[in-house]
Design a protein around this nucleic acid. Structure first.
Lengths: 346, 346
DNA sequence: TTGAAAGCGCTAACAG
DNA sequence: CTGTTAGCGCTTTCAA
């Protein structure tokens, strides 16, 4: 096959190859490859000549060819699941932004793939067998994580965002945010404001994350010797549930403040307050979890526990580099602490 | 190099190749390739034999090798930009979900890459020159779209989500949502409810999208012979701007309803109402734009214009398949109509 | 320090 | 209908 001639002033149909650069620089293809991957091997003047040819031609190594040869795609697979309508939660989307940003600095791109919500494993296998990605970032660990077990068995490199709830001593790499610490922070904040009867609205008992967050509220209350009896409620993660749970709690336990496992639930609390003519922050304090857009724009602002997702992304990428390095470093397990975004509701 | 033996019951370190399948099925490599890509060329019994070998081995063609050979990556590049804090807007994130879902049905994966917010072109060039993606989906067309012009010049296949505002007769493929129709819908809804003085809070005049949406409000008002004098305001897209703009309008023009260019602005209106003890939906009606999570969970629910992003994704992928087809079909230009999500605020 | 040869896994073109 | 041959663009030995 003859090479398409490069007509000056016209964008070539096919991008330049190593051979094009080599010809222009008057060296062999391997020398160009070295100039790109091991520049220190070249004599300064040769390097200079090759680099000029590279930039004149606008050469960039063909990804497919490089991938084939190096058996690496520099792609990180991330499965994204549908976001339920009617909730405030957008943690994953925020995380995706951070991950794309951070991994790009490490030379990786993020490949998104959809998964069947009913099958936590779906999607991974094909990508793995086709060697389409170098590693995965696993996020949906809310119900144990079969993915981790499965990927480990397949010897596929991966980092989980979310600790292995079902087996705390699992050896794989993970990064998580300490939800208990976050709720402790939120509760302590309210205690310091003078509240004594602080109610908890969380998720159902089968949610590890929910129980973890709840434990933060519980321990903060206990550390001040306060009773929690009758002050806790476990419901579905919907605005409606938050609304009715808070109504019941208000009637039966007279709390002066609420800590919620999510902003979605907290929005339900705000609804109850609105219905009863109570002012959030003045009459009753409310704290949510996730620092969603909703928390940021609702009146008068919803105080909320904020996960340091940018930091999570950094740790995830660091762990990934470790796993993918030569030699691979041992799996990192990192726990980060959230902060509290203070707003009008407290 | 010797092939790693496949020990039964143990996951092989390297995925099986075409050669492995061929050996097992007792055919040549090419026949296996045909079985995968042109099954109709094989005799039924051979096909059966090959397919059994494929599934026994769990074979899937190596992506890099296939990409190299076919000069296609089956990857679609999508640049994602940072989401400003403190706004309600998450249209792009919702779109990403739909795009991933839809393009996967068409055999494509979505590759995310970050861009320098100050340079609308950054990120595209490298991916293109490295032939890392087959096509782009361009989204941030809010200020004209230099990307489109640039990509066209490079002969890079792409579909824009967002019409070419700066040159309406541009020939490239695009899909957009009719913002004017959306605001017309919203305004007409309010008119039908008996409102006559309907105010507009939109973006500054240099936003094409903003002016388009505004025109929908304007034409709906005019179609009923109503005056719009003093009823419109153009501000920044922040909650605070929406709050102050609505306060001024309320004082000076006594509207009974607001149509806003975004949910962010609408949240500002809700704040003003809350401050003045006015009930949204009962005293003053409010309609936002984008049907954000905020609109869904805020009390008493914010009526909002909803972009059919799932449909946008379908059209985008259809356009993409057209561009990438053999032969390529002419660029599609599709305009979709939004709907109105009715809630308590109206 | 530079160049020649080999081959990653696949598919397009052709021969049998 | 099946097999043989060649080569996509790159990097990795190894020799000069």
């Amino acid at each position: 096959m003859t090479q398409t001639p490069r007509i000056p002033g016209r964008v070539p149909a096919a991008p330049p190859t190593l051979a094009d650069v080599a010809e222009r620089a008057g060296v062999s293809r391997q020398t160009v490859s070295n100039a790109v991957n091991n520049p220190e091997l070249l004599r300064p003047d040769t390097l200079e000549r090759v680099q000029r040819a590279i930039s004149e031609l606008g050469y960039l190594p063909n990804r497919a060819a490089r991938n084939l040869r190096t058996r690496a795609s520099h792609l990180i697979g991330l499965r994204i699941n549908p976001v339920p309508e009617g909730t405030a939660n957008a943690t994953m989307d925020r995380f995706v932004h951070s991950l794309v940003e951070t991994s790009s600095e490490a030379g990786y791109h993020v490949l998104l793939f959809p998964g069947d919500p009913l099958d936590p494993l779906s999607g991974y296998d094909d990508l793995l067998r086709a060697t389409a990605v170098d590693a995965f970032v696993v996020t949906d660990t809310y119900l144990g994580n079969p993915q981790a077990t499965w990927l480990e068995k397949r010897r596929a490199p991966f980092v989980a965002f979310g600790r292995p709830w079902d087996k705390p001593d699992a050896a794989h790499a993970w990064v998580d945010v300490d939800g208990a610490a976050g709720c402790d922070l939120a509760t302590t904040h309210l205690l310091d404001k003078g509240h004594h009867r602080i109610a908890w609205i969380g998720w159902r008992k089968d949610s590890w994350i929910g129980e973890d967050r709840r434990s933060g509220w519980y321990r903060a209350m206990k550390s001040r010797g306060l009773s929690t009896t009758g002050l806790a409620s476990r419901v579905e993660d919907t605005v409606h549930s938050g609304r009715s749970a808070s109504a019941v709690l208000l009637d039966e336990a007279q709390p002066s403040a609420f800590v919620c496992a999510s902003d979605t639930l907290a929005m339900g609390v705000l609804q109850t307050l609105a219905e009863r003519g109570l002012a959030p922050g003045r009459d009753i304090a409310v704290v949510g979890f996730d620092d969603s857009q909703v928390a940021q724009v609702v009146h008068p602002g919803l105080t909320s526990v904020r996960q340091p997702l940018e930091q999570v992304a950094v740790e995830v990428v660091t762990a990934l580099r470790g796993l993918l390095g030569h030699p691979p470093s041992p799996p990192r397990q990192v726990m980060l602490t959230p902060t509290l975004a203070l707003r009008g509701s407290s």
